[in-house]
Amino acid sequence: MRAQVSEIVFDCADPAALVRFWAGLLGGAPVDRGPDWSYVEPPGFVRIAFQLVPEGKVVKNRLHLDLEAPELDAAADAATALGATRSGGVVTDPQGSFQVMRDPEGNEFCFVSG
């Protein structure tokens, strides 16, 4: 049997707010199924869902999304305008460059180029 990814789910404190951030970042229309579950289906990507949990985020994510962005500073500026924050500066190595970001609830993601 071979499984297929149907969605990526983030635990969070405010699904309705977080889905609107990610919809603004990746495209797609935010959908609220109820106060404890929202999702977005970004064009060309798997559904991303957000579920309400009682506990807050405590440590670094063990999984994060890398988002291709030819212009890291422009992508980081646009994400910041939506409510994200930069985490450190741009890192460059022989494979390219990346900027670590945090969404409004602190979930890490990266803009990558190269």
Results as ranks from 00 to 15, higher is better:
L25I: 11
V90E: 01
P43M: 11
L65H: 12
P43D: 00
W37C: 01
P15V: 13
D66M: 04
T80W: 08
R33T: 09
F111T: 10
D36S: 14
V9C: 09
V31Q: 14
T85K: 03
G96T: 09
S87P: 00
G27M: 08
S113Q: 12
D11Q: 12
S87H: 12
V19R: 07
C110K: 05
D11E: 14
F45H: 15
R102W: 01
A16Y: 11
F21N: 03
G96P: 13
A75R: 03
E105T: 13
Q99K: 07
V90Q: 03
C12Y: 10
G27C: 12
W37Y: 15
E41I: 08
N107V: 06
Y39A: 00
M1L: 01
G27S: 13
A75V: 11
N61D: 15
V90H: 05
H64E: 12
V91G: 01
D11Y: 14
H64M: 10
G34I: 12
A29I: 11
A13Q: 15
H64C: 04
G56F: 08
N61M: 03
V58M: 07
H64V: 09
D77N: 14
S113V: 00
W22A: 07
A29P: 08
A84V: 13
E105N: 05
N61A: 14
V9E: 07
F21W: 12
A74D: 13
H64N: 06
I48Q: 11
A17H: 14
K57F: 01
V59Y: 14
F21M: 02
D11L: 01
P54N: 09
G24V: 09
A3M: 07
V53W: 10
A16T: 14
G114F: 02
V91W: 04
F21L: 04
E68R: 09
L26C: 11
R20N: 03
Q95T: 14
S97L: 04
E7I: 05
V46C: 08
A75W: 11
V9Y: 04
V19T: 15
A3I: 09
N61T: 13
G27H: 13
D66W: 12
